[in-house]
Amino acid sequence: MTEILISIITMTALGFLFSVGLVFAYKKLKVEEDPKIEQVSEALPQANCGACGYAGCRAFAEAVAKGEAEVNGCPVGGEDVTSEIANILGIEAPEVVKQLARLHCRGTHEAAKDKGPYIGISTCHAAHLIGGTKQCSFGCLHSGDCVRVCPFDALHMGEEGLPVVDEDKCTACGKCVDACPRNLFELHPVSQEIIVFCRSLDRGAASRKACKNACIACGICARACPEAIVMENNIAVITDYKKISPDKIPEIEKCPTDAIGRLHKDTNEEEKEEEKKEDEG
């Protein structure tokens, strides 16, 4: 019994001694910090995702307070956070271009032909090491590495086997861009309507054989809009989306394999058809 008492007393005394020491040390050694750092840090989303290029929200806040980082450097927070930080620092908020992650592949289960069954670790990286399961060696592997890595729950696997980006939740943090072993994700401004939905560098015939929705490098889109689209290595490349004028979009969307076009073409077209019906009516 006394042994227990002694040990309890010793530990309590030791703990007390150290805590008193630390309290005094804290008072003596306290470092005054720029109060802006704390305020900016509170305004940030605290996801610590690293999309800004700093080690975390705290490190970014320090850089902003020092003036080393741009006020709009946090892509996750977007406009709200930027204006809040600008308020704290007392400067005008620059404009933020909202970006979204876009998948550059339309190789659904139906469209892209299988090479053979894959039995093994079900991650894209593992499947990619042995060359993937599809005949197309550039397209989506369907195992959802991107879905697992998304910190904002903005990606989920669609019924057709391709990851679908939830545009409301996506913050363009870029984790999926890094996660995809085939680099199928890219960040694009929301305003960019036309996107090339293919990464296949195979020749036209081989591409078409492997996937119904592959870019076969026929060049229709490049001829429709030569100032913004060029053909490189058997694939269409958008050099400057701002140069694509809206009246060229129908021309570009004549793509025989749907490998280039608007992401939300279907809904738009339904609307158009409805409009037509209304006009007729």
């Binding site: 530990m11 030791l14 150290f18 020491g21 630390l22 050694l29």
Partner: peptide
């Protein structure tokens, strides 16, 4: 005769020391 408290008290020592060292270096 409290040898059996070594681990616990060493944890205490290390945790407090690192805190102290951190504050000290920062200053």
């Amino acid at each position: 005769g409290l040898d059996y408290l070594q681990i616990v008290s060493f944890i205490l020592v290390i945790a407090s020391l690192v805190q102290l060292v951190e504050m000290f270096i920062r200053k």
